[in-house]
Design a protein around this nucleic acid. Structure first.
Length: 304
DNA sequence: TAAGATAAGAGGGACAT
DNA sequence: ATGTCAGTCTTATCTTA
């Protein structure tokens, strides 16, 4: 009684009748005889660009039609139209108008839910994949999901990429629970630039008023050590080096992975191990230059 | 080949205007 | 809100042992 339709000349792929109709509210084409739907909406939500500055934001034009349709329901759900007429074009009675009005309200509310639901589905399926790739615990995933829902509630996802926020929330969850995963780790798995993730990360931190503990470089040591195949002994020595460095307050502002790598390298030298800077830097995910700079700092301050 | 040095460039925080 | 500044890390290239 509420679909507005008009004819187009395509025959139905299922029953062959030339009775194709288009619902001009959803843009969906279907057969007037058997109801077969021949065109579906493309599953895509959110803008395909992000703006980082106000200027960019105002200059950027939205490409494509900003319909709520593609975002809501993939064109497959029924939307209650806005004309108070029945299927034969006759006006509705007053009491029926009231009923339809209330239906519309609930209809639109359920549509809104579908938007966030789909957003969540998208985000969570990616999250599942990342859990495997990064070997993360269920607790981390739960925490990420919780943060992600909060981000949606606060409207922080709008205008940013879903995956960027997923990556950022995941990174926060790791940091918060002391699981050593670097931004680089997350970035390479989800295929989003570190730059973009860290932008999302900072926004989330600010808007959700989160307090994230600093990365403890000592925790990073064992991870690097096992990756580079270093001995327990070397690892212990590196621990004491770092502890001293932290006490001397020469570690703030430095990349914890770089510090850990440098401590390990120095520890190798002390233990008479000939592990190259290259190997350790690679395992730590920093450059050799950074490792060298940290080494220099540690050597000077700790008089090694 | 490994290690060290140097320079240019990017991104972000602190601070002043 | 915008610009500048010092400090950090990265990439690339060259030199040295």
């Amino acid at each position: 009684m509420v679909l507005q339709t008009f004819n187009i000349s395509i025959s139905c792929a299922r029953c062959g009748k030339n009775l194709m109709l288009t619902d001009n509210t959803t843009g969906e084409r279907f057969c007037g005889k058997c109801g077969y739907v021949i065109s579906e909406r493309i599953d895509e939500s959110g803008p395909e660009w992000r703006s980082f500055t106000q200027d960019e934001h105002s200059n950027r034009a939205r490409t494509g039609v900003p319909t709520s349709l593609t975002m809501h329901d993939m064109g497959l759900a029924t939307i209650i139209g806005y004309e108070n007429k029945d299927s034969t074009g006759k006006p509705l009675s007053a009491s029926m108008k009231n009923i339809v009005k209330r239906l519309r309200t609930w209809d639109s509310r359920s549509q809104a839910h579908k938007t966030t639901d789909r957003n969540l589905r998208h985000a969570f399926s990616e999250l599942n994949r990342l859990q495997d790739k990064l070997a993360l615990s269920d607790a981390i995933i739960e925490k990420t999901a919780y943060l992600y829902r909060k981000a949606i509630d606060k409207g922080l996802v709008r205008g940013r990429s879903v995956l960027g926020i997923v990556a950022a929330t995941l990174y926060i969850a790791c940091r918060d629970s002391g699981t050593p995963r670097t931004l680089t780790d997350v970035s390479s798995e989800i295929n989003i630039k570190k730059k973009d993730i860290s932008r999302c990360y900072r926004v989330l931190l600010r808007e959700l008023e989160l307090k994230i503990p600093l990365v403890d470089p000592i925790k990073s040591i064992s991870r690097i050590a096992s990756k580079a195949g270093l001995s327990e002994k070397v690892e212990r020595r590196a621990n004491t080096i770092l502890k001293n460095a932290i006490e001397m307050e020469i570690t703030s502002g430095k990349d914890p992975m770089g510090l850990a790598a440098a401590a390990l390298y120095l520890s190798c030298l002390m233990n008479g191990k000939n592990t190259s800077q290259r190997v350790i830097a690679l395992a730590a995910g920093v450059t050799e230059v950074t490792l060298r700079n940290r080494c220099k700092g540690l050597r000077v301050s700790l008089k090694l």
